[in-house]
Design a protein around this nucleic acid. Structure first.
Lengths: 137, 137
DNA sequence: TATAACGTTGACGTTAACGTAAACTTTGAC
DNA sequence: GTCAAAGTTTACGTTAACGTCAACGTTATA
């Protein structure tokens, strides 16, 4: 008995903190392919993973289209040589973009650290100032 | 003579690869504050830097509002203790979010590497297959 | 002086990514 | 059997982030 766990739409919605509308929207866009039991959608583990990928993509600022492109890389469509070459190209491009995104984030983290330093100092001074004036009373 | 270099709107647009409409839009949203010579906007270096920050924010998936919040951290508004404490809180939150974004990107980079491996192998096999059949002729 | 080139202010249009509401069906619990 | 919970479709609404005219002013230069 292979474990083909399935999920209802509201289960997935709750698990990932999105609305059912969002999930239906992703299906409408062809990014999820739940089966049906009558009208009701039944999501497989494959769909669950795809949903995770979509949401991770969103967190790092990717559009749904970009997420779709990346997800499509996971299970390559055709088996012809040109397609493989093209896919390798696309992978390299994405990788480069993600690397530069890494740099952007690291830069930002760096300057946030500085800002925190400055703010901490300013707070300390403000507190010193406060205790000074309260001694004066 | 302090160097107060200034820029026209199209200079900045060209430098950063955006349209003038975009820059005007950012001003409209209160994120840039160019001076005026008559009607014409004159951008200072401060505005240039802010524009850079906005665009970096965009690249890592931040909305303009989020960028604004971060930029506002750079020059803290008031000097009161509660504001400093609040600011430190915000800094910590942002930092945490950026860290998890780093993880997301690193994960993605990891799986892209795997995909590339698999694709490279598949391509190699396809090429081998091709030379085989061409020998047969 | 005319004619580009660059600038300006409206103002309406567009796309992505859902939100929201209505009207209806299906189903498990009492 | 009814009724609340969860599901469905259809369809219009909304927001962010600009794009795209139109109609106009200013400046350099040929």
């Amino acid at each position: 008995m292979s474990e083909h766990k399935t999920y209802s739409i509201s289960q997935l919605a709750a698990e990932f903190g999105v609305t059912t509308r969002t999930i239906r929207f992703y299906e409408e866009k062809g990014m999820l392919h739940p089966e049906r039991s009558g009208q009701t959608r039944i999501f497989s583990n494959t769909d669950r993973v795809r949903l995770e990928l979509i949401l991770r993509g969103k967190r790092i600022g990717m559009s749904l289209e970009e997420s779709r492109e990346i997800i499509d890389m996971y299970d390559p469509a055709g088996g012809n040589i040109e397609q493989y070459r093209y896919l390798l190209e696309q992978i390299d491009k994405r990788e480069a973009q993600l690397q530069s995104q890494l740099l952007d984030i690291q830069d930002l983290l760096g300057s946030l650290s500085e800002v925190r330093q400055r703010t901490a100092v300013a707070l300390k001074q403000a507190l010193a100032q406060q205790s000074e004036t309260s001694e004066q009373e």
